[in-house]
Design a protein around this nucleic acid. Structure first.
Lengths: 260, 260
DNA sequence: CCTTCAGTTCCAAATTTCGGAACATGGTGC
DNA sequence: GCACCATGTTCCGAAATTTGGAACTGAAGG
């Protein structure tokens, strides 16, 4: 294992639920000997990837990660376009919008568009969630081949909420339904009482894949309102797919033509 | 040079002005042989610190930096407190507020509070600027010992705008004035036609240092208006220094007492 | 004074990294 | 079709770094 790999292993210990760690935390989480942990933490601190609170001596991501994180948005083309459209839909419907990307079998929230409805934002940007328990996460997975999905989902299928697919077969069934209907939704999964609908958008040139969702309180919305969201999302998906050259946006004959 | 150091050297090549780099760019900027560059870029990409645009093959900061950057705010106590106060002053005065930290002889913008005045925000968060050419940067430097300042400023004094201190002696003179009057300002330095006033705030326990500034168009403000800003900033500094236990906020006798 | 906890330093062995050179790969002009 | 150039990647032995156990330090607590 290279020095860089070990360093990354340490960095990956930090998360929204564990934004700062003590020496002992890091040692426990990485399972490395004290000496290695000590040296590595010092290097990371010295180079700015980590900071150490002079008081509590705990470590947290440093100034350099802040600077680099700010640059990440270069990603823009696809995301910015999607965000603009999403923003419009959110002001129209009052619900909260999310844009996320896939990383392994998890998704990471990139952008949030708060709605006017009083549903607190529960997933700040940077938040990680298993993609199999969200509407946009499953929409993204549905765009991958079954083989690729199998490679991403851990062999030891994760423990998920009751409403989510409980095993690999259920997951594939659910993804097939998304592929067939083009609609993905979720209710009472990641968060009790919260539902969402989502779709996946791919950049036609790069294949870059993002998931877009609108979430709302299940109790506080009627079936009619949710149908409106579905229509809005459908229109948005169609428009964005044309704009970004997403192959799913192409009529079937044309797609067939491209494949040859 | 360790693998981690080389990796950081590459990461530090990215900046707001250069948010993505080609293989050749990285090689030129780091001055390393092709083979090393190739291996290192691959590692960085594989671990998520960098992403590669599949189309242009250019590299940019990756998802991991985004996630970690989101966690950086742990810094909070001092910055969040300052930001709240700054926000109030900015709505009152209509000008734009900045919070930055020192890194070597440069400062990095952490937070921006846009004012209502139509002065476009020119320094987004993450932006690096030599601290010697900004009001809050110099205010932070003024809190350090001359020896420490000398250690931070490059021996080869950087090229700076006409209104900024042109050499180390001028810089020290200017910092002494800040120490004496407690006031730091700048005009037509980092950006033509833009002026600012700032101060530095230290956390009494940790010694953590941040710089707070309000910036405005020099042409579009009167001397009276700038005096108002000075007064607002003075009041804010005093209040924040009490709140955060900044030693500068303590009356002299008390400070003398603490030193014993 | 002894013990524990938290972390650092030391050292020889083991693993990585290093950079030059040879080897792909993909356009471009002739 | 072919030489040619720009980009990158892979290979290899030498050289440097990393590794982890153990000894060490320093502070806190009983």
């Amino acid at each position: 294992m290279s020095a860089l790999t070990s360093a990354i292993d340490i960095l990956r210990c930090f998360s929204t639920s564990r934004p700062d760690l003590s020496f002992a935390d890091v040692q426990a989480l990485t399972g490395k000997p004290k000496s290695s942990t000590s040296r590595l933490l010092r290097s990371l601190r010295d180079c700015g990837l980590l900071e150490q609170d002079p008081n509590s001596r705990r470590y947290r991501p440093g100034l350099l990660t802040f600077e680099l994180g700010r640059l990440h948005r270069a990603h823009d083309d696809l995301i910015a376009t999607a965000e603009r459209e999403l923003r419009e839909v959110c002001t129209r419907t009052g619900h909260t919008g999310y844009i996320a990307v896939l990383d392994g079998y998890q998704q990471v929230v990139l952008r949030i568009v708060p709605g006017s409805n009083p549903l607190r934002v529960v997933n700040p940007p940077g938040q990680r969630t298993p993609a199999i328990i969200t509407s946009n996460g499953r929409a993204m997975l549905a765009r991958l081949s079954d083989a690729e999905i199998r490679a991403r989902v851990p062999l030891d299928y994760p423990k998920v909420p009751a409403n989510s697919p409980q095993n690999f077969e259920q997951l594939i069934a659910r993804l097939n339904e998304i592929r067939r209907t083009g609609v993905s939704d979720a209710a009472d999964e990641a968060i009790e009482g919260v539902g969402s609908q989502g779709f996946a958008l791919a950049n036609g040139e790069t294949g870059e894949l993002i998931g877009i969702a609108i979430s709302y309180s299940v109790q506080a919305t009627t079936e009619i309102e949710r149908a409106i969201v579905r229509r809005e999302l459908g229109a948005m998906a169609e428009k964005l797919r044309r704009m970004t050259g997403d192959p799913l946006g192409q009529p079937v004959e044309l797609r067939a033509g491209l494949a040859s």
